[in-house]
């Protein structure tokens, strides 16, 4: 009788996880990858840079995954989960890379805690230590909102990852090589929906424009260089987003033109004392997001999951 079922536990904790899109046995996300910091690069700056790119992906993924079971149709539910999973995978590698570059960024946990460094970074850091852009963290709105946010995000991230493929840092180059394919699809998905909503019904156009108006001021942060980005770009490890501006603008203008939408005449959202998300100066939304994201992990700092 149990013959039908006994075999499903065979190799339960073994290595075959090919059935999972993202694997279940990735105990060490950087296994076999050279994590030496490239010559002439400040490890603390490299770690900060990896946190910027990693936190962008992590927080975007968290917001996207909130859509699960809430999308307009099953097909879009599945599509949004795919995007969230791609970004979560990127985040995991980038946070692990940050920890490997500079273990000093990893929050201290009780002695003997089995929590791996990338999880310590995701679940035990304070909001002011997160370096994501504020575009990623603001609360979800309607479907128009997720389309606009993903378009603005992926237009910039794709341009960045394309250049990052030639980084002197092996991990960043590898993350970029994989990420380019993923983010190209995200941009495509968002661009197509942007066009659809812009040219769909009056209602969809109204909602899309409202979302664009609300999110556009947050976009500049993605294409404005932070000193860490500038420094690593000159060392051949990172990418200066200011150099991407022209290309990114052109792509965005193309989508806007095809959709018959004007670029909003809204100035960039100011920082606090010139500090923005990249420096840990966030909106109120991040603290709330982290309270939810971190609650179980923080309740069990020595827990095994």
């Amino acid at each position: 009788m149990s013959d039908d079922h006994g075999s499903i536990f065979d190799g339960l904790l073994g290595g075959d996880s090919s059935q999972w899109a993202f694997g279940t046995d990735f105990e060490d996300p950087l296994a076999g990858v050279d994590t030496t910091t490239p010559d002439g690069v400040d490890p603390a700056e490299l770690a900060a840079y990896c946190l910027m790119l990693g936190d962008d992906a992590l927080i975007m993924s968290q917001r996207l995954s909130e859509w699960c079971s809430r999308a307009p149709d099953l097909e879009e539910d599945i599509a949004l989960a795919n995007v969230a999973l791609d970004l979560l995978g990127q985040a995991r590698l980038l946070l692990a890379r940050a920890a490997a570059a500079d273990p000093g960024v990893v929050p201290a946990l009780p002695a003997g805690s089995p929590v791996p460094p990338e999880d310590a970074l995701a679940f035990f850091r304070e909001d002011r230590d997160f370096r994501n852009v504020r575009l990623a963290e603001v609360a979800n709105g309607d479907f128009g909102h997720v389309v606009v946010r993903l378009l603005l995000f992926s237009v910039a991230r794709l341009a960045l990852l394309e250049r990052l493929r030639t980084s002197r840092d092996h991990v960043l180059a590898a993350v970029a090589a994989k990420g380019v394919k993923e983010v190209a699809y995200h941009r495509d998905w968002a661009g197509r929906w942007f066009l659809t909503l812009a040219r769909g019904t009056e209602e969809s156009r109204r909602r899309l424009l409202a979302a664009l108006d609300a999110l556009f001021p947050l976009w500049a942060e993605l294409v404005t260089a932070h000193p860490v980005e500038r420094s690593l770009a000159s060392a051949g490890v990172g990418v200066d987003p200011a150099f991407l501006r022209e290309e990114v603008d052109a792509v965005l203008d193309q989508v806007l033109a095809a959709s018959g939408v004007e670029r909003p005449a809204r100035p960039p959202l100011a920082g606090a004392g010139e500090r923005t998300g990249r420096d840990g100066a966030h909106t109120e939304a991040l603290s709330l997001l982290l309270a939810e994201m971190q609650v179980v992990a923080r309740a069990h700092p020595s827990g095994r999951w």
Binding site: R92, E118, D119, M293, V296
Partner: peptide, 9 residues
Amino acid sequence: ISRAPSLRR
């Protein structure tokens, strides 16, 4: 999903 205690989970 929003509260999963590790990135892997």
